[in-house]
Design a protein around this nucleic acid. Structure first.
Length: 102
DNA sequence: TTCATGACCGTAG
DNA sequence: ACTACGGCCATGA
């Protein structure tokens, strides 16, 4: 397992409830500015094993990027439960809900 | 070792 | 707002 992968997992774990981060943003924090796709892959394959708050990750526009409709619904519900507003197109306002560790 | 695969991103039209 | 394209790079087969 590469350092980038471990950092990514840790960073995702540190996203507080009620906040979200984008794939690219996480990649930057993990030290690989162009590793957004790796972040996505990690979420896809390691969320359960590491108990990651996968629902707190959206794309650079604040939009939910899941293929499966059920999963999309689950993510919106999780977020709304934490107080994050999700509009009808499955998008959140990053200006208000982005978590920026710096 | 090579190769395809993405829950991506930025730019351009 | 939406599509297309090129670049990206850690995994697993």
């Amino acid at each position: 397992m590469q350092p980038f992968t471990e950092k990514t997992i840790q960073i995702i774990k540190e996203i507080p409830p009620g906040k979200v981060m984008s794939y690219g943003q996480i990649a930057v924090q993990a030290g690989s500015p162009r590793g957004a796709r790796q972040v996505a892959r990690i979420l896809h394959s390691l969320s359960e094993k590491h108990e990651l708050p996968w629902h707190r990750v959206v794309n650079a526009e604040g939009k939910i990027m899941l293929r499966d409709e059920e999963a999309r619904h689950a993510q919106t519900v999780f977020l709304q439960t934490e107080g994050v507003e999700v509009d009808q197109s499955g998008k959140v306002d990053l200006k208000r809900f982005r978590h920026d560790p710096n």
